[in-house]
Computed example of a mutant assay.
Amino acid sequence: MYITITAQKLGKNYGQSSADFVQYLEKENQGLEQENMEHFFNQYGDEISAEEVVREIDGNTAKLKKKEPKFYSITVSPSKYELGKLENSSEDLKRYTRELMKDYVKCFNREINGRAITVDDIKYFAKIEHQRTFKGTDRQVRENQPYATKILQFKHDIRKIERGEANGNIERFKLKIGKLEREAPHQQNGIRIVQGMKKAGNQRHIHVIVSRKDASNSVSLSPGSKYKSSEVEMHGKKVGRGFDRDQFFERAEKTFDKTFEYKRNFAETYKARKDFVKNPNLYFAALMKLPTNEKAIAFKLMHKTGIPIIPNIPTSQAQLALRIFKRLRQGVDVAIKSSSIGI
């Protein structure tokens, strides 16, 4: 499960309206007949139009400053293993989203009129997407990049020869390009993986756009708050503040597992991923204590997500720690970007 929470982009990308972002989320509907389109939905409604989403989000921004985010984007990308547990992918993901947003509100340390926040207090709209493309930060694209650079140079050389600016054998350059295309380490259906290429297989994921203000347009609810969970005194009263992201990510996993009876491996858990970044020694110590079959699955999952692992598992935990730390110092930042959940 890969989950991110992102504030509305201000400046060049997105302005004061949600229209550009909503239009971006409509990209898969282009050219489709009405009955084949994926529509926006929320806690109680389906087939909500893009126009209504823009109108509701843009009209719910009372007292927000010009440079404050008007909405947040939550992206939920289940792994192929998690998607494999779904019987009716789109409908199941809608059902999960509605449960997930209940978890979302429970992670705010806030009250409205003296009561705990409920899902009825937020204004959100969600959409299921079926495709994903490779990004420049993906491991496959990064590791193919040296080949891409050489191919680009050879194509540049060919153009120079065609313009009469240089001498050379064009066919020889084409053969070199073909060889590099085949030798690139990451291929999809026999084609070198490049940035922007559509990913094969089941790529369904969820986009949620949630208003910064509550449904009454009077209370600010920011999941981007720097305060995890605390209290502050305002006008002589103690007021709760903050959003607990750790709790949200953990709840998201538990809700998925309970809803679809999914048996989550240690390597797929948010806690494990966080320990991998914050305390690698604890992560690998816990990994080595797993039963043999679970450990084998965990190492397989780690390999799939790009986390640096060793080819042969040493018998001594001291040896393991020493060899792993050498790899971690070089690869931890890149590896976690390819892992299963945003931190």
Rank of each mutant, 00 (worst) to 15 (best):
N279G: 00
L180W: 09
I310W: 11
G31C: 07
E111F: 04
Q23F: 00
I177N: 03
T6C: 09
D92T: 07
Y96M: 03
A272L: 02
A215P: 00
I341C: 09
I324E: 07
P69I: 01
Y44R: 08
G342I: 01
V53L: 05
Q317K: 08
T149I: 14
L175I: 10
A7L: 04
I177C: 03
T269I: 02
K337P: 00
M37E: 14
L83I: 05
N279W: 06
K9V: 07
T4L: 05
K9W: 02
R273I: 07
N167G: 10
R139H: 03
V208T: 12
P69A: 02
K174N: 11
R251M: 10
D244L: 01
P314I: 09
D58P: 04
K135R: 14
S229G: 08
F41Q: 05
L320F: 15
K106H: 15
G15H: 11
Y44P: 00
N265D: 12
T137I: 03
Q23V: 10
D214E: 09
T4W: 00
A62L: 14
V141W: 04
V105Q: 10
G240F: 06
L301Q: 08
Q8M: 09
E99P: 00
S229W: 12
F108C: 07
G84Q: 04
I177Y: 07
I48H: 05
L152Y: 11
R95Q: 12
K199I: 02
K123M: 06
I117P: 04
I177G: 04
Y227F: 11
G242V: 02
I57G: 06
Q140G: 01
R159F: 06
K278V: 12
I3C: 05
R204A: 12
E111L: 09
V141R: 05
T315G: 15
N279V: 08
H205W: 07
L32I: 03
K63S: 13
K289S: 06
T61D: 09
Q16R: 15
